[in-house]
């Protein structure tokens, strides 16, 4: 809390002996405003200038609605796959010892480091009907590349580290005492997992899912190669924005981007709320 004298002098921050607040805070705020806030505001400004009727006509056209359904649906499906396997990977990395664990742990971050376009063409090479994996799936009637399933595969690749890195620290911090207590009280290992461990890591798992989901909804580079890009069928929302831009349909691109951004911000708020809730739980 600011002291009385600092309030009298008009200081809005707590006084400190360290120098550089004005410089660093001013620089951060100026850079943030110039690079992030003003450019992002342009989108809302342009949307507001369109008028509600025009905005709905292009932002919620049949083609746009199909793209939202596809983007949000595949991102949710990939998020669920990652929630299951991300938890498994995090569990194995935290709890068990096996040779090459260091390498495996480093590999988990590959999707953060590998450019999305590289991931996109590599996955397409694997899952195309003649590809390494696709040639075995094709006779079974399973088509991955150029279908929504291919989009899910790409988004599983992109989203995995979000879940693993969200769950890992919480799992590592989980005290052995609660598990011992649970076992002492007669719970089986499976009961201990479902009743004790799972509730404790639930918020972190949900955060990881939300992060992977949010990333998946906006993902572009890894998806466009494998998706086939058929309007209404395998055309994701970010691709529709690019298509609109290439046709100089700036209003259409802006309206779709606005809808997607509002959805992303809603997800971001949800993540923050989840994190606050899980912190409150941990502190209790």
């Amino acid at each position: 809390m600011p002291t009385v004298s600092s309030r009298l002098k008009g200081h809005w921050r707590q006084p400190s002996v360290l120098p550089g607040f004005g410089l660093t805070f001013g620089l951060s705020l100026a850079w943030l405003t110039l690079i992030v806030l003003i450019p992002l505001a342009t989108i809302f400004l342009k949307s507001a200038g369109m008028g509600w009727h025009d905005f709905v006509a292009v932002g919620f056209s049949d083609r746009a609605l199909a793209a939202y359904r596809l983007s949000f649906g595949t991102a949710a499906a990939a998020g669920l796959v990652n929630a299951v396997f991300g938890l498994l990977v995090a569990w194995v990395l935290v709890r068990y010892a096996f040779p090459g664990k260091q390498v495996v742990s480093a590999l988990v971050d590959l999707p953060f480091a590998l450019p999305t376009a590289v991931a996109g063409i590599a996955l397409t090479a694997l899952y195309a009907p003649t590809g390494w994996i696709g040639q075995y799936l094709d006779p079974l009637g399973i088509k991955v590349a150029f279908t929504p399933l291919g989009i899910i595969v790409a988004l599983v690749f992109i989203g995995l580290p979000f879940v693993v890195r969200s769950v890992e620290p919480v799992l590592a911090d989980l005290g052995k005492e609660v598990e011992e207590a649970s076992a002492t009280l007669g719970a089986s290992r499976f009961q201990t997992f479902t009743r004790v461990i799972f509730p404790a890591i639930g918020p972190a798992l949900l955060t990881g899912f939300a992060l992977a989901f949010a990333r998946g909804v906006g993902e572009y580079g890894s998806v466009i190669f494998i998706s086939g890009n058929m309007p209404g069928k395998t055309e994701i929302a970010p691709l529709l924005i690019v298509t609109q831009l290439e046709q100089y349909a700036y209003d259409g691109a802006t309206a779709i981007a606005t809808v997607m951004m509002l959805a992303s911000f809603a997800i971001l708020l949800l993540i923050n709320w989840l994190q606050a809730a899980s912190r409150g739980r941990a502190g209790a």
Binding site: W12, R13, Q14, S16, L18, F21, F25, S28, L29, L32, V36, L37, P39, L40, T42, I43, K46, T116, A214, V217, G218, E219, Y220, G221, A237, P238, L239, I241, V242, L245, Y250, A253, T254, A257, M260, M261, S264, F265, I267, L268, N272
Partner: peptide, 30 residues
């Protein structure tokens, strides 16, 4: 330093993470 609005500033710094790359390009075109 301690100042009001700190958590808002941290949230705003994270903002580009939650924006689609395509939208990040679009804003500069607009």
């Amino acid at each position: 330093f301690s100042f009001p609005g700190k958590s808002l500033l941290i949230t705003l710094i994270d903002l580009p993470f939650s924006v689609s790359p395509v939208v990040s390009g679009l804003i500069f075109v607009l």
